[in-house]
Each structure stands twice: as structure tokens, then as C-alpha cells.
Simulated scan of single mutants.
Amino acid sequence: MGGTAERVRIPPELLEEVAGFGTATLHEAAGRIGALPGGIAPLSRKMRLWGTALPVFAPAGDNLAVHRAVALARPGDVLVVDHGGTLSHGPFGDVLALAARVRGIAGLVIDGAVRDSDSLIAMGFPVFARGCSIRGTVKRDPGSVGEPVTIGDITIRTGDAVIGDADGVVVLPSAQLAAIRDTAVARNASEAEMRARIESGELTLDLLGLRDLIPWHNPPCDDDGG
């Protein structure tokens, strides 16, 4: 595990305030960065997740690194596990979820599968995954904990802000979080005004300046009908 001892913690009040926005709004407010692949979704649409990232690399079919991460995580951390996107095994289930919850871990995001999904939902432990697999794993490769991992085209680093809701997961640089919050506030205000104008009859084509981008008239046909 490298570099986690010196990391700067995100002020809890700032993180909670940012988590009050939808992930789509945060993604846009951040300049369209940080969106994890759409296949990574909550086990239940009611699940919400926010915390600081603890990146984990666990080779496919092996979950020793996840056990390491649970032991090393701090309260408020979110385990963000690169499991290669495979659905062949379920490296995380209700036993690990219980251990994680006891240690104050805020949730799990995994590029892979989990198992015991009904129990995880009943526990209320936030889990965002690609799917489920009942097959267990071996425990041989320690993988890595605290080193950057890449999921899709997004690199996740220790201490990044992780927010998840029914739409998906966004990962944001902690140093930019206050500015992203301010932009999200302004964006919500702008969208509220737009909704009011739509209700009064205006079109999104005009509100967004899209009308000139559309060829309203078909080009005339050639003499040969082409």
C-alpha cells in the first residue's frame, strides 16, 4: 500500500454537500470527467455512495487484495476494485461486506461481479458492480492496495472523491471538489430557469441555440431522382 498515510482527507461536510448532487450533474460540472463505465451500477437503485477512494487491484478470480484493503482502509473510504471487468467470479459477498461495514468503509465499487446480492441489499451496504457471479475466488495474489487503478478510461487515485447513485459512479479529484461544487450549484440554477421557460412553451432547440445546426429543408433532388 503506497502513499495513503500522507493523503489529505476531504472535509466531510464538503463531501456530503457534493454528494447531494446527481452524478450526471457532477460529471458535467467537472468538465465531463470521471464517469466510470455505465455497466457499473448499484445493486439496488436506492443505493447511494460517497467517500474517498481506496484503489484496489485484484487479479481475476482472486480476492486476497480485497481482504487486504478491508484491513487497511480508513472510515469513509470506498473500495474501488479493478477486477478486470470479469463476471466469472464473485470476489465480494456478505462476509466481506460485514467486515467492511464494521470498519466504517463507505461502500464498494468494482469492475467485476459480486455475490450474495440479496444479503448485500438487505444490509444496506452500498455496492456498485457490473453484475453477479456465484463462483468463489482463490486467495493467492496480494494484488495492490492504494496504488492507482484504471477502470474504463478513468484512473482512480487514493483520496479521490467517489460518488454513486442510480445513474452510475463518478470519480473526482479531491483538489477540485470545492470548485466542482460551485459549478454544480450554478448549473442547477441554470437548469431550473430552463425548466421554467420550457413550461412556458419555449423549445430546447432555441434555449440551447441548436436551431441553426439542423437542415430544416431537404436538398432538391437531381433530375435523375438521385
Rank of each mutant, 00 (worst) to 15 (best):
D94P: 07
T25G: 10
V56C: 01
E13A: 15
A122Q: 12
G112E: 03
W50P: 05
E28R: 09
A53T: 01
M123V: 04
G104F: 03
P59N: 06
R68I: 12
I10N: 11
G90V: 07
L120K: 15
F92T: 15
A24I: 13
L96I: 04
G84K: 04
H67C: 13
R101C: 11
E17Y: 05
M47R: 01
R45H: 02
R74Q: 08
P75R: 09
I121L: 02
P59E: 04
I105S: 05
L108R: 07
G31W: 09
L96C: 04
G39I: 05
L120V: 14
G112H: 00
R115T: 07
V66F: 07
H27G: 14
D82M: 09
L98P: 09
P55Y: 11
D116W: 07
D116A: 11
L43S: 06
G61W: 13
R74D: 14
G61Q: 14
G51M: 03
H27L: 12
R103A: 07
P42A: 02
H27R: 11
D116G: 13
E13C: 14
I10M: 09
T52E: 11
L64N: 12
A99E: 09
G90A: 08
G34R: 03
L36Q: 05
E17N: 08
G34F: 00
F57E: 00
A35C: 03
G22M: 15
L72Q: 10
D116Q: 13
D82P: 10
L64V: 12
F57K: 03
N63T: 11
T25Q: 15
V78G: 01
F57M: 00
